[in-house]
Computed example of a mutant assay.
Amino acid sequence: MATPDFIRDLRAFAGHQLLWLPGVTAVVFDDAGRVLLGRRSDTGRWALIGGIPEPGEQPAVCAVREVEEETAVRCVVERLVLTQALDPVTYENGDVCQFMDLTFRCRAVGGEARVNDDESLEVGWFTVDALPDLKEFGRSRIKHALSEGPTWFEPAGTP
């Protein structure tokens, strides 16, 4: 994930200390029920598409923007799937971030899936029963996006 300019500006003052940041994840389905994934250039692993909203940008707008920027697929957001505070991450340069992830179920409405920026090595559509090696983060979000249940969140008082 490319670091937005506003975070670089924050780091000039904050150094490597923990930054609490919003993040969005898009679970994009096509009409055949396949899910859109990108193989990340930073880790080499397959993952859902996501990113960080710009200041003042609505999270759903960010999800649509990130999908098109990274994959050339146009999509619409159908619903909020889950919200979750993730564990802090320490990057190779020592920067520490913790993300509040908002995951959206999206529907593809146009475009052809392709690598559209330097954040992905490959982009593709996968049936949910034949996913590539995908971390539990992605698998659980796909599962929640397929359910018709309410938005998932960690209930108050849960350890």
Rank of each mutant, 00 (worst) to 15 (best):
M100Q: 11
V115W: 08
E122F: 06
I142P: 03
E136G: 01
G138V: 04
L121P: 01
A108I: 07
I142E: 02
N93Y: 08
A130G: 12
R139Q: 10
N116M: 01
K135V: 10
V115F: 00
D95S: 14
G110R: 08
L131Y: 11
M100I: 07
S120I: 02
N93Q: 10
E136F: 05
R114L: 08
D117P: 02
S120P: 00
C97Y: 12
D117C: 10
S140F: 04
F104W: 08
F104S: 00
I142V: 06
F137R: 07
V115M: 06
N116P: 01
D129F: 03
Q98I: 07
G111F: 10
D118P: 01
L134R: 00
R107P: 03
T103V: 12
C106E: 06
D118E: 12
A108R: 02
G124D: 03
A85W: 12
R105T: 00
A113Y: 09
T90A: 15
V123K: 03
G124N: 08
K143D: 12
M100D: 06
V115S: 04
M100V: 12
G138A: 09
D95R: 09
C97I: 13
T127I: 03
V109Y: 07
P88E: 15
Q98K: 09
R141S: 05
G111D: 10
A85F: 01
D95K: 05
D118F: 01
D87F: 08
V128M: 11
T83I: 10
P88W: 06
N116C: 13
E119L: 04
D129S: 07
D118Y: 06
R141Q: 14
N93S: 15
K143Y: 03
D118H: 09
D118A: 11
V123A: 00
P132I: 00
D101E: 13
V128D: 05
V123P: 01
V89Q: 11
E119Y: 01
S140M: 05
K135T: 09
L82K: 13
Q84K: 14
V128N: 05
S120E: 08
C106V: 09
D117G: 11
A113N: 09
E122G: 06
T90D: 02
D129A: 09
T83Y: 07
R107H: 14
T127H: 07
T90Y: 08
R105F: 04
A130D: 14
Q84F: 08
V123N: 06
D118Q: 06
F126D: 00
E136S: 08
R141P: 05
D133P: 02
E122R: 13
P88T: 15
T103G: 08
I142Q: 00
F137M: 04
P88D: 13
W125C: 04
D95W: 11
V109I: 14
P132Y: 03
T103F: 04
C97P: 01
T90K: 15
V89K: 09
M100F: 14
T103Y: 01
E112W: 00
L86T: 08
G111I: 06
G110A: 07
C97N: 13
C106F: 08
V89G: 03
G138M: 03
R105V: 01
K143M: 09
Q84C: 10
N116L: 05
D101P: 02
D87V: 13
A113S: 07
C97R: 15
E136W: 00
D133L: 03
C97D: 12
Y91M: 11
D118S: 11
P132G: 05
